[in-house]
Amino acid sequence: MNTTWSRFNIVSLVIGFAFLYLPIVLLVVFSFNESRLVTVWAGFSTKWYVSLFNNKSFIDAAWVTIRVGLISATVATILGTLGALALTRYTRFRGRMLFSAMIYAPLVMPEVITGLSLLLLFVAIGFDRGIWTVTLAHITFTMCFVAVVVQSRLVTFDRSLEEAAMDLGATPVTTFFKVTLPVILPAVVSGWMLAFTLSLDDLVISSFTSGPGATTLPMRIYSQVRLGVTPEINAACTILIAIVAVGVVIASVANKRREVQKARDEQAAARH
C-alpha cells in the first residue's frame, strides 16, 4: 500500500470535507447570532439558547424523543441481534428468503411508505396513536440496521471459539452468553448507538405514526422550520449536533486507543 499524499487526493479530500462540514459549521455559528436574521452576523449572543430552554414545547419534545430512542434502541438491539443470528447461523429454515428480504428492505425503503403502512396497521387494529406507536415503528425500522451491523461481525466470527467452549463443557446457552456475546459485543453496542441516533433523527416515520401528545423533537423542529428560519432552531440543532458529535468522537477515540494498545501488545508479544 502506498502511503503518500498525492496532490489530487488532498484537493479532493479538502473540497469534499468542506462541502460536508461548511453548512453545519455555518449553522452552528449563526446560532450565536445576536440578530433575529440567520444570515447577517450582528454580534455574539447566547440569547437563543436561553429562549430555547424556556420553550416548553421544545423541552417536552426532547423528552419524548429520548424516551422513544432509549426504549426502541434497546428492543431493536435485542431483536436485531436475534435476527442476525438467525440469518448467519441457520442457513436453511422455511421462509428464510422472505426473512432476509424483510431485514434488508427497510434499509432502503422510502420512509413515506414505511410510515404510511405502519399508520394504516395501527388504525386497522385500533391502536391509539401516541408515544407507543412511534416506539413500535422505530423498533421496526432500526432493528434492521442493528441486524446488518451484527451480522457483518458474525460472518467473520471464528466458530471454533464456540466449539471450544462446548468442548470444555459449556451448554449452547452458556456458550452464547459467555463466549459469543462478549466477542460480538462491540458490534452489538454500535448497533445500539446506530439505532438510538436513527430514532433520534427520524422525522417522516414519526410524523405518520405519532398522535397527540407525542411530538418528537424533529417533528417540533420541522413545524418551526416551515414557519421560517430562526436562530432558535439553529440553537436546537447545535445542541443536537454537539451531543451526537461528542458521543461519536468519544466512542471512536476509545476504539482507536484500544486498537493502538492491542497493536502494541501484539508487537511486544511477538518479541518474546
Binding site: I24, L26, V38, T39, V225, V229, V249
Partner: peptide, 29 residues
C-alpha cells in the same frame, strides 16, 4: 477520515437539510 465522513451521518438528516436553507436563500450566505 472515516470518522469524519460518518460523523455528519450521525447528525440529524433534518438539521443537515435545514442548514442549506440559510445558505441558498436569496439573501442567504
Amino acid at each position: 477520515l472515516l470518522m469524519l465522513v460518518i460523523l455528519p451521518f450521525w447528525t440529524s438528516f433534518l438539521i443537515r437539510v435545514y442548514a442549506w436553507i440559510g445558505i441558498l436563500k436569496p439573501e442567504g450566505l
